[in-house]
Structure formats: structure tokens, C-alpha cells
Simulated assay, not measured.
Amino acid sequence: MQYRPMAIEDYNAAIQLWQDTAGVRLRDADSREGIARYLERNPGLSWVALDDGRIVGTIMAGHDGKRGYIQHLAVAEDHRRQGIASRLVANCLEALQQAGIIKSHVMILRTNALGEAFWHRLGWQRRSDVELFSFINGGGENV
């Protein structure tokens, strides 16, 4: 297994993996242009896992200067239970720490039981003291 920072050239394979992964919801911001902006703004923080040149895992991360935000962790179904997701998270957290970010958040869908179990196994704690509100500036789908 090879791991490297994600590049915009990985977009087509990544979007296909996300579409094939239960628990990953895609929105307008996941357009090629949106992902390109995200990667440019957060260099070296998003990762891919490759098996024989095929992208079999992804994780994306960014930060606001004090907190990291992780999203789109996905591993191809035929490559699960091999430690790929854990390694992607570790690479991501190490890159965030090198950027001076020590606390990170991940948002998962309430219906994503596999995701919830995974993050719990890694020691992440569910927050019950905050609610998430979203807004799309200029219209669009507010979910």
C-alpha cells in the first residue's frame, strides 16, 4: 500500500470512491473546482491510499488556524479491515500537527453506524454540547 498527499489529478477516482461508499454524502462543494480550491488552501493535509496504482482510500482535511476538520474518509469495500483508514487518519493528524493544529473535528451522518464505530474505536469522542448549523450563501441546498 502506498500513501501520498491527494492531488486534483486524483479527483475522478476519489469522486467514484465517495459515490460508492455508504455514509459519504456529496454536495455542490465537492465539484472538481471546489476540491481544487480546498486542496490548494490546505496543501499536504489530504491523503490517498493506492494499491497497485488504484486509489482505494481517501481522507481530506483542512483547518481554520486553530481546529482541524476531517472529511471524506473512505476505503474501497474490498480493501477494508486492513488498517488503511487508520493509517490515513494518522497521516492526516500528523500533517495537521505539523501545521500547529492539535484538535480536530469530524462530522458524520447520524445514519453512518460504521463511521461512528470507527471513530469511536480510534478514541474520538462524540460531542453532545454543540449543534451544527449550515447556510449556503447565494442559494442552493442548505443541508
Rank of each mutant, 00 (worst) to 15 (best):
R37S: 10
R37Y: 03
Y38N: 03
Y38H: 14
L39W: 02
E40F: 06
E40A: 15
N42M: 00
N42F: 01
N42W: 00
N42L: 00
P43V: 05
P43W: 06
G44I: 04
G44W: 07
L45S: 02
L45I: 03
S46Y: 03
W47T: 04
W47I: 04
V48M: 03
V48Y: 02
V48R: 02
V48A: 04
A49Y: 03
A49E: 04
L50H: 10
L50V: 08
D51F: 13
D51C: 13
D51M: 11
D52I: 12
D52F: 12
D52R: 15
D52P: 07
D52Y: 13
G53Y: 11
G53N: 08
G53E: 11
G53V: 10
R54A: 08
I55C: 12
I55Y: 05
I55V: 15
I55E: 04
I55T: 12
V56Y: 02
V56H: 02
V56P: 01
G57K: 02
G57A: 03
G57P: 03
T58M: 01
T58F: 00
T58I: 05
T58Q: 01
T58V: 08
I59P: 01
I59R: 00
M60E: 03
M60T: 03
A61H: 00
A61G: 01
G62K: 01
H63D: 03
H63Y: 02
D64M: 09
D64G: 12
D64N: 15
D64H: 12
K66V: 10
K66G: 11
K66Y: 13
R67C: 10
R67P: 00
R67V: 09
G68W: 05
G68N: 11
Y69I: 02
Y69T: 03
I70L: 15
I70A: 09
I70R: 05
I70P: 08
Q71D: 05
Q71S: 11
H72C: 07
L73M: 14
A74R: 06
A74V: 07
A74L: 10
V75W: 06
V75P: 03
V75G: 06
A76C: 08
A76T: 10
E77N: 11
D78A: 12
D78E: 13
D78L: 06
H79V: 02
R81C: 09
Q82S: 08
Q82D: 09
Q82L: 12
Q82M: 12
G83D: 03
I84N: 12
A85Y: 06
A85W: 05
A85F: 07
S86A: 13
S86G: 14
R87I: 01
R87K: 13
L88E: 00
L88K: 01
N91F: 13
C92D: 01
C92P: 02
L93P: 04
L93I: 05
L93R: 11
L93H: 09
L93S: 07
E94Q: 14
A95G: 12
A95R: 08
L96Y: 06
Q97W: 06
Q97S: 14
A99S: 15
A99H: 14
G100K: 13
G100N: 10
I101V: 15
I101D: 10
I101S: 08
I102W: 13
I102G: 08
I102T: 14
I102N: 12
